[in-house]
Design a protein around this nucleic acid. Structure first.
Lengths: 216, 216, 216, 216
DNA sequence: TATGAATGAGCTTTCATTCAT
DNA sequence: GATGAATGAAAGCTCATTCAT
């Protein structure tokens, strides 16, 4: 296709872009202030539109919130799943890679705010919490579990209760996200995420790795 | 002091009790609905007083919230510290005991709601978040760190970077509290806290324990 | 009871009076502007209170509207029924009296606005319309019908289809109320209610009266 | 003019049709929901055009409303007047015919909704009310009055106060229209328009007819 | 002409806070 | 101290109206 074929009048391009601009603005404010304290007028203003425009794209505040969650969760999950699919080395390296890259993608971006958001607002939006459970926790859990099964099958990790170990491996990631958006900003709070994850991985691998067969 | 000196007419004792009744009611509702969605009228009603009375004891909603947090954090910390002080066995047993009992006291009681509350509202109350950091996280961290130092000193755990390992040991506890008050109530969410903690402790101790010195 | 026993502090008396003050204000404005065009702030202002106060007594605009209707309909019906109960003369005089007094009580007061209100808003409040049908139309119809039955029983009116004649007798009353609140205020509109009712009654009685028995 | 001169390309003919389609849609919705509750977007949608198009033909909502009223009133009046002009029998039959046919044309069609509309919204549109008074009530009144004068002149009805009797004859028609669009739809509401009009006419003619001259 | 995205004034409703009693 | 009626700012949401295309 000729590159110019895609050019649309500025005005119409905006129409297509609007929902994304609004979702981006809403993500920022929801993460920063929480659901209740975010005023829709501020979301609109940050997106450069008026209050009424927001309602052309989202039925109400709750639907906007849900859209923000959905819009930011799906890509994160997909990305993480791809990392695993294409890996072909030792499972210990894979685990390290997945967890460290997860933090770089999710934790260091604003996406981590989504998780914190869900933790915080779950009580007021049970369906969102369950949606998150299904779409993120379950898929993420399956992803980690598949790594562990692979490792055991390849004789790289000891046999184990995969389900529970999976939950154990997820814990530090949840902690990092929660920490980042709560006490993290406090002066006295001192936590180096990468060092923390390294230490955790060292400890975990120590317990998971099958010791090399002793020389005969 | 003569025991009867402490006796006051009932209505005066009630005066002292009022704030506690209000704090208890507020704790329940804040945990259940979050800060913004909790109406002071409901707090007052649950405490059996009128809305106006609430303002005799707390300047405004924000101060009530802070009082709730402070009131519920202090005892939790103290209780955890006492567990350690009086223990005299192997450090591995101590670690197990502290973590399991912590969950039974904190996690299974409403006190865990306080932590969730702080995570959720930290953005709106930075000073509360820092207060929590100072009074809970730091003290809790010191507590765990002292256990680790004791263990290393007694030749029970390997030498280690105590600060980071401490943070690693805290992670599953934070995860449990967050989980309990967010996706925990979802149908599909399946997590047995005790089994989870056991698995974590197994893995951790595996990495921490100094292998017994080989016979010469 | 001693007359002074009833005296309450001004402030508390107001509390009891509030709903009535609000209903009166709402009646005025609803009749004048219709349901949708009436702003609750104006209702409150006319009652001398703030917007919020209104919500202490009525759940929302719709409930206020329903309360206005109920509050103004019941007494009207009762009053009309009493007129009949205590009458003891010729049925023709009773019919005249009931209809003329009805206009003086209902039509010339603001209560007639209620009927107009219901006609106007019936589409938006089907339950109100039915409530009106049950409480006013049906009761009013029964009232008129009982007069006609009495008249026939006493040999004063000819035998007739009471149900339909009743509806015929109601028509001019409905017309007057509708007229008063619609085209009545126009310059060119010329209708003298009493003359109109007189003419109608003359015509009706002409058709209803049993001619005196011819001398044998 | 040559018959083909009138042929226009379809799109241009549509241009003329637009206002009619819009007026028809607006009539439906105004009658169904009242002025305030009718959204212009719905009117446009029902007419199959966009919201903006509506504003090409009508300055604003109020003007659309007025156009709807005017557009639907004129033909009604004209039709009723024609009935009389061409009649040549007894005045009693004429009166019956006019009133019954009026209900069949006006009452049973959507046109009756216009009258109800005016009754309901008169307060917000005094000029509409007066327009209705002038164009409908006055003309209708004159029409009925002319029938009565004809009847008296022909010695068919007694001499009477034509003005007031006219108003009396109009009452049941107003009642029927009001009833149809307010409490009519209620379950309990039972009114057979034709039976009602028949009963009214019987009663009225009883009072109006000149008794046949006694045989000499 | 026709469109429909965008606007923003305006309204209902909520609730933290005040204060006369 | 205790009450609860009253307040009014604030926020969500609607919809008549405009205007660039």
């Amino acid at each position: 296709m000729h590159p110019l074929d895609d050019i649309k009048p500025r005005w119409e391009r905006r129409k297509d872009a609007r929902p994304q601009e609004l979702l981006a603005a809403a993500l920022d404010l929801f993460v920063e202030r929480g659901f209740a304290s975010t005023r829709l007028e501020d979301v609109a203003k940050r997106a450069g539109v008026s209050k009424g425009t927001l309602y052309l794209y989202f039925t109400n505040k709750e639907e906007l919130f849900k859209a923000v969650v959905r819009d930011n969760i799906v890509p994160v999950i997909g990305a993480a799943e791809e990392i695993i699919a294409g890996f072909d080395g030792h499972s210990a390296d894979l685990l390290r890679k997945v967890i460290i890259e997860w933090w770089q993608m999710m934790g260091e971006s604003e996406a981590s705010g989504i998780s914190k958001l869900i933790m915080a607002e779950a009580g007021n939006f049970p369906d969102i919490a369950c949606f998150y459970q299904d779409e993120v926790i379950t898929r993420g859990t399956n992803m980690i579990a598949s790594m562990l099964n692979r490792a055991v099958a390849r004789g790289e990790f000891r046999p184990m209760d995969v389900t529970t170990v999976t939950q154990v491996l997820i814990a530090p990631m949840m902690m990092l996200m929660t920490w980042k958006h709560s006490v993290g900003p406090c002066e006295k709070s001192q936590l180096d995420p990468i060092a923390f994850l390294d230490a955790f991985l060292d400890m975990a691998l120590h317990g998971l790795l099958l010791p090399p067969a002793p020389p005969a």
